[in-house]
Deep mutational scan, measured.
Amino acid sequence: CHSECLGNCSQPDDPTKCVACRNFYLDGRCVETCPPPYYHFQDWRCVNFSFCQDLHHKCKNSRRQGCHQYVIHNNKCIPECPSGYTMNSSNLLCTPCLGPCPKVCHLLEGEKTIDSVTSAQELRGCTVINGSLIINIRGGNNLAAELEANLGLIEEISGYLKIRRSYALVSLSFFRKLRLIRGETLEIGNYSFYALDNQNLRQLWDWSKHNLTITQGKLFFHYNPKLCLSEIHKMEEVSGTKGRQERNDIALKTNGDQASCENELLKFSYIRTSFDKILLRWEPYWPPDFRDLLGFMLFYKEAPYQNVTEFDGQDACGSNSWTVVDIDPPLRSNDPKSQNHPGWLMRGLKPWTQYAIFVKTLVTFSDERRTYGAKSDIIYVQTDATNPSVPLDPISVSNSSSQIILKWKPPSDPNGNITHYLVFWERQAEDSELFELDYCLKGLKLPSRTWSPPFESEDSQKHNQSEYEDSAGECCSCPKTDSQILKELEESSFRKTFEDYLHNVVFVPRKT
């Protein structure tokens, strides 16, 4: 048989008469490798580009789960590009990614509803959504962080984005990388972005840091009482949809009607710091009717980097990364020049730590249904340095008659930039024990000054392991946590139920 035959053949030295091919099969003959313009397919066939392209389009058009959109890589027609490569849609070739590779997620039936953290986790790592997304989240724990972890990498949506009755959302900033909504599939009414009845939605994105392009379709905003109209108009300008909307697409009466839409800028007039305090004062603000001013709200939190936005980490279910302080308005003076500047002394802060701070007014709604208010920009203030805590785990070892090696770990709280350490030492008198000992005694162990690591005695271990207080009263049991108490109650309830079950099964009433 021919060298490319495997198993047997019907005619000697003829690659077209093989029972099976050793390498690849091409047009009725066995070959060692697939010549151009053919590609290896499933490690035994040679196919042309049209064959591989037909497989790709067949799966793409069917949208069946589990099928493969075949691509070409290293002269092979394979189910998908290997790690580190992405497909070129024009020629199906796998090309190296520039940075992290995109991950295209194809949605069944063309859309997916995100109504819980669990459903959001199914899209973790996706960068391109081939379909439409509907966000409908009523509640949950730590929602802002969970949504950002699972949806934060999405850069492109081919269909539309719909935010509907998501009472738990305060902001859409968890879509931190969303840059493009194509609108290839539109919501009824030709809408590519749809926001309806979101009672706590206050911000779409921080438009000073976020760009969003909507290729096709219109915007729809109705019944978002805490979303200011200025935020919607800003989205029109940034996304390129200005002029597409009709009169009733953006409701003037049901958007922002319960919001404090600040239209003035508060400026800080005085800032002073110490290692654990920050004193702030800002310019006074009074609405047209000074009785509408209820006070100020001061927001602050630790910020290692200057990239904080107002609604980071917030949701309507209680999660809030900001510390909020309510401040009463100052006494009002008739003389504008003698107006008191409101302020606040922030206490209990960490030394040498940068804080993000902003302040906003708290006002009631005027009778004319106009909203007044003022808010400052987010500023960054760093507390002063102070003395560091003591170095940890000092170790001293003498390696000769004239040297001592000293080692330690950095302090747990540096409280500033540590530039150097101060080492103090003092000579001590020799131990009298060394002169009084009889060095001729056998088995004498000389006193040693070398360091030995501390260890816990058996008594201390027994005390720590004991669940009861000892007789001397030195140790006591740790208080039980809520989960331990709940577990004990469940076990007790189970024992009672099981005992009742045994009584009912074992003891049967005697027939009379």
Rank of each mutant, 00 (worst) to 15 (best):
D206I: 07
S260R: 04
E302L: 10
M346V: 09
S401Q: 11
S321I: 03
S171F: 14
P304G: 02
L169H: 06
Q339F: 11
E264W: 08
L204P: 06
R291S: 01
L252F: 13
H341C: 15
P330S: 08
L151P: 01
H222N: 07
Q314R: 14
P330E: 04
G240W: 07
V325G: 12
E368R: 13
H222P: 02
D292R: 02
N320P: 05
L266Y: 01
V397L: 15
Q216E: 00
Y372D: 03
L196W: 14
S208R: 12
N340T: 15
D335I: 11
K177S: 12
Q245L: 12
D393M: 15
L133Y: 03
E246M: 13
N150D: 05
G159H: 04
N224V: 03
K350R: 14
K253C: 03
H106R: 06
E109R: 15
D393F: 15
N211L: 09
Q245G: 08
E283V: 13
L196F: 14
Y194L: 11
P330R: 14
K407A: 01
N263M: 02
S239I: 10
N200Q: 11
R247M: 06
L108H: 11
D315S: 15
G159R: 09
Y305G: 11
A259Y: 03
L293K: 01
N248H: 05
S319C: 13
L161Y: 03
L294P: 00
S119T: 07
L212M: 12
F311C: 09
E237P: 05
L108G: 08
K301R: 13
T361L: 00
Y160F: 12
N141M: 06
S260Y: 02
P288L: 09
S239H: 06
L107E: 10
A251M: 14
R281I: 14
T361M: 05
I357C: 15
I163C: 11
G373L: 03
R247S: 12
K360V: 03
Y305C: 14
K112A: 05
L219H: 12
P288G: 02
R347M: 05
E122P: 02
L204C: 06
L172K: 02
T371Q: 07
H210T: 14
F311M: 06
K267G: 05
S402I: 13
C261Y: 01
Q199P: 10
E302G: 15
H106P: 08
Q314P: 02
D377L: 03
N307F: 13
E231K: 10
Q121W: 05
S269H: 13
L219N: 15
S400D: 15
R176D: 07
K350H: 05
K277G: 13
V238A: 14
R272V: 12
Y355Q: 00
G183L: 02
K218A: 07
T213G: 07
L229R: 12
F296L: 02
H341S: 13
S401T: 10
M297V: 04
D312Y: 07
A251S: 07
E237I: 10
R370T: 08
K103H: 02
K407P: 00
F268A: 03
G343D: 13
L229P: 04
Y191N: 07
K360D: 02
D206W: 09
F311A: 12
N130Y: 02
Q245T: 13
G343M: 07
L108T: 13
S158H: 08
E187T: 10
P342N: 06
L151H: 04
I271S: 09
R124Y: 00
E262V: 01
E302T: 09
D328R: 13
A144H: 15
H106F: 03
Q339T: 08
N130W: 02
I137T: 12
I129K: 00
M346P: 01
S158P: 02
E184D: 14
E368S: 10
E246T: 08
M346I: 08
V128L: 15
N200T: 12
S119D: 06
F174I: 13
S321E: 10
M346H: 05
K277A: 09
S401R: 15
K103E: 02
E155P: 06
E246D: 13
S333P: 07
P391V: 11
F268T: 02
K242G: 08
L331K: 14
V324W: 08
Y300F: 06
L153G: 14
V325A: 14
L180I: 15
G217P: 02
I129M: 03
S173T: 09
R347V: 05
S274L: 09
I157W: 00
W205A: 08
G140Y: 12
S338G: 13
W207H: 10
L266N: 02
N198D: 05
G240E: 06
H341A: 11
S158V: 05
A303E: 06
G295S: 03
I163Y: 04
S389N: 06
T273Y: 08
V324I: 08
I181L: 11
L133P: 01
L143A: 00
K103R: 11
E187M: 12
G217F: 05
L362S: 05
F193R: 02
Y223W: 03
Q403K: 15
P411D: 01
E146G: 05
G131F: 00
L147D: 04
N399K: 14
I357R: 02
E156D: 06
H233K: 04
S366H: 15
R291I: 02
E156S: 05
R281L: 12
P329Q: 05
K162R: 11
T185Q: 08
I214H: 04
D312H: 11
L153Q: 10
Y285L: 03
G256F: 04
R244S: 05
N334K: 12
V363P: 02
N399D: 15
W207S: 09
S116Q: 02
T215R: 13
H233P: 08
K277W: 14
W282M: 03
K267L: 12
L279Q: 08
N340Q: 14
I163K: 03
G110Y: 10
Q199K: 14
P391M: 02
F358Y: 15
L349A: 07
A144E: 08
H222R: 08
K350Q: 11
T215N: 11
G313I: 07
T254E: 04
R347E: 04
T254R: 07
K337A: 11
L219A: 12
Y194W: 11
N190R: 13
R247I: 10
T353P: 01
F290N: 01
Q339H: 14
R176A: 07
V324E: 07
D115K: 15
T361F: 02
D312F: 15
D115L: 03
